[in-house]
Design a protein around this nucleic acid. Structure first.
Lengths: 216, 216
DNA sequence: GCACTAATGTACTGATCGGTCAATCAGGAG
DNA sequence: CTCCTGATTGACCGATCAGTACATTAGTGC
């Protein structure tokens, strides 16, 4: 095996996955042709198929690797002994950092997930659920310690949603905010809410107290 | 013009838009062929092209109509004289109701937006921005009246994100929660935060007060 | 030089892509 | 009946689709 890796130490397969993320993010899975994927990697179709099994393999391998790595980083945070508030913040920072640093992959995972079929779709769905459970566990810990109000399904998906949605609008290279600043701002909303202090905001006898905790 | 409309009063063009939303939502814009779109509407390719200009026209018309209608419903809420908290809640309910009732269209608008090209993409982007501004205006009103803490860009997109993300997971026919219940739960997070009362949660001298308001 | 293998390009498959076209059909108006 | 118009069909366009087969190149160990 002569030159499996180029001067930067990246194998052809790794290069293909990297450029495929960019192409899939820009044109969509079905919108990108195999010839286009090869061209982006500097290969003709025939050579490309020497390195990959199929176009769907590309999408699956790319997505699986991304989610597994995010899962691994998230587990380190969840397994730490931080205070629930700090743990939620750390997990959110990790999440937005990933979105900022590997936006192409995030776009593909979140937007083209449904292009996977059969067993592949199920396996990636399981990985995605595991990652979602990281947030559920942090919230549950908080509820047990009397720090958070609720950890029900909708709350977990709400937290995940407010963070995930940043993949649509956050461009780390354009915006003035760092990933950590964005994560902090979003998680502040979730933790403290947008309501100003009842002292200054209450008027007309309006009820501005927080609602009762939600049942799990 | 004999039978432009069938017995239910739906024109062929309207029927095409309706079934196209379902097909695009299931297979994606690039993943669905025009033959498949026609078949879903009970037409051959040739007949389909008698009613539409192009495949992209279909996506554009479908998306434009959806966003314009959502925009119109949202404006009614924003132009009302509700208290900012109630107005935000009403806007959120309207939003989740739309997601629940016309999920196919929402999926297409949010997921296949990027398949539009040129002027079409720009025009729809403008409409989307107008809809986003509804949330910005409600938050700004709240800040002016001392009710909300901030109305900066990230806050607006955070609120929009926590609501929008429900299009990924909320199935009105499966879940036990009504759209209004989901919207209320999500908007409670935004308004009050997930932090339990500082009285019961504070410990070790931990700072559990809300952070300072964010600058616009 | 020789043999081996990783890697690549070229050429091909059958199918489908979005879109167009002329011919035709169905039904109401005169 | 004739004429008109809305609606539909099926054939056809060139291009591209994902995937395969095979010969060729390039580099290594001997």
């Amino acid at each position: 095996m002569p030159r499996q890796r180029d001067e930067s130490g990246e194998s052809t397969h790794e290069r293909i996955l990297r450029v495929a993320a960019e192409v899939f993010a820009r044109k969509g899975y079905h919108g990108a042709g195999v010839a286009e994927l090869g061209e982006a990697a500097g290969l003709k179709r025939g050579a490309l198929y020497y390195h990959i099994g199929s176009k769907e393999d590309l999408l699956y391998d790319l997505s699986k690797r991304h989610v597994e790595e995010a899962l691994q980083r998230g587990r380190v945070v969840v397994d730490s002994d931080l205070h629930p508030v700090d743990k939620l913040r750390a997990l959110a920072r990790e999440h937005v950092q990933t979105i900022a640093a590997r936006r192409d992959e995030v776009i593909v995972v979140l937007r083209e997930m449904h292009a996977l079929t059969g067993k592949r779709a199920r396996q990636l769905g399981k990985l995605r659920d595991e990652h979602q459970n990281l947030f559920a566990r942090v919230l549950e810990e908080g509820v047990e310690q009397g720090v958070f109000r609720s950890a029900d399904h909708v709350t977990v998906l709400g937290v995940l949603g407010i963070l995930n949605w940043s993949y649509v609008w956050y461009d780390a290279e354009k915006g003035p905010l760092t990933p950590d600043q964005v994560a902090d701002r979003l998680i502040d909303i979730v933790i403290y809410g947008e309501l100003a202090s009842p002292r200054s905001a209450g008027r007309n006898g309006r009820q501005l107290e927080a609602p009762a905790p939600v049942q799990r």
